[in-house]
């Protein structure tokens, strides 16, 4: 198929918004508020995993936190000087990535013996198992106190000195991962997942190995979660089991749903918004969780495809007003309009 290098106005707008975000945010924030933004970026990486599983493949998994834990604790063990090891953090990140890929692949092989709701239940089981080990097993996970003194990231000699430095590193990570995920969506894997989401039987008759495709998606989600976990450990220089509970797992799903579960830009917006919301609404902290909960219900009722769904609906109606719709034969000059 011919590659089409046409840039759509919406893509341009997204890049513009991203550029403004990267320029404005670090110049207006520092210290604590910068740290919160950074956390939002880290969570976005994990939420991209949710997007691959739930948005593309229609599989609801809670296992994000289990694999975030894998990434975080591998990094914590290798880079905090406990057990006498203090490895280069970039190398630890790579190790975390490989280990989580193996674990997620294995777990996926087991969990996808189940389908639909029962798969979801089983991922909850995985979360409970991993969490209780993270909480209680001291030699590897530090027990309830967690692990502290984790070294900060060191990328080829460059090491962030404050949260503003971190912001640029994380923004770069998010950008690269967003790009890779968007490519998944546009590749055969993305299409196969979409086919599975809509109708598994039809997917099979199109030659798609439903089981293995789901396992691949689960592995990708696991790796993304682990990268987020590893970065989290280096960024906070501290890891404890609170980060990897069932409740946390629901947050990632909600982040994805708020932004638009099948939209790469939306995932980012959702993650940052959900992370920032408690800060903005600090004055009404008492009611925060309540608002949050009701907000989720309202979101599902009125815009199940999230902010991105809202935006694309708006864009479509705008387009309809601007151009009278012209239909073009496919295959002539590629896509039109």
């Amino acid at each position: 198929m011919e590659k089409r290098m046409k840039i759509k106005p919406s893509t341009l707008l997204i890049f513009l918004a991203a550029a403004i975000f990267v320029i404005v945010i670090p110049n207006t924030n520092e210290g604590y508020s910068m740290m919160i933004v950074n956390l939002g970026l880290i969570y976005a990486i994990a939420t991209y995993g949710v997007s691959v599983m739930l948005g593309m493949g229609g599989q609801l998994s809670f296992a994000t936190v289990s694999f975030m834990g894998v990434g975080a604790y591998i990094t914590a063990n290798l880079c905090s000087g406990r057990n006498g090891i203090n490895m280069n953090t970039a190398l630890a990140l790579v190790i975390a990535l490989l280990a989580s890929a193996l674990l997620a692949f294995g777990a996926g092989l087991i969990l996808f013996r189940l389908k639909g709701t029962y798969f979801t239940f089983a991922t909850i089981g995985l979360v409970q198992v991993s969490w209780s080990f993270y909480l209680s097993y001291k030699p590897l996970f530090g027990g309830p106190d967690g692990i502290s003194n984790i070294s900060t990231l060191n990328l080829f000699g460059f090491s962030p000195k404050n949260y503003n430095d971190w912001f640029y590193i994380l923004a770069a990570f998010v950008l690269v991962i967003a790009f890779l995920v968007e490519r998944v969506r546009r590749s055969q894997l993305g299409r196969s997942l979409a086919a599975i989401r809509d109708n598994e039987i039809a997917a099979q008759t199109l030659g798609i190995n439903v089981y293995m495709t789901k396992v691949v998606a689960f592995t990708i989600a696991g790796v993304l979660a682990a990268v987020a976990g590893s970065l989290y450990a280096m960024h906070s220089q501290f890891v404890s089991s609170d980060m990897f509970t069932y409740e946390r797992a629901t947050t990632y799903i909600i982040m994805a749903m708020l932004g638009g579960v099948n939209n790469t830009a939306g995932i980012f917006v959702g993650s940052v918004l959900v992370t920032m919301l408690p800060e903005w609404l600090r004055f009404m902290q008492q009611y925060l969780q309540l608002i949050y909960g009701i907000g989720v219900i309202l979101l599902m009722v009125f815009m199940p495809m999230g902010l991105a769904g809202l935006a694309s609906g708006f864009a479509k109606s705008l387009k309809r007003k601007l151009y009278s719709k012209k239909k073009v034969t496919a295959g002539k000059e590629g896509p039109k309009q």
Binding site: M1, Q188, T213
Partner: peptide, 28 residues
């Protein structure tokens, strides 16, 4: 049976994907 929330192009590409049989990595 088509993908309801995907473009016509993606829907048709599923056919070509099957003809190619690359596997996900090569296609990626």
């Amino acid at each position: 049976r088509f993908l309801q929330r995907s473009s016509i192009e993606d829907n048709l590409l599923l056919g070509t994907d099957l003809a190619n049989q690359f596997g996900y990595l090569k296609s990626y």
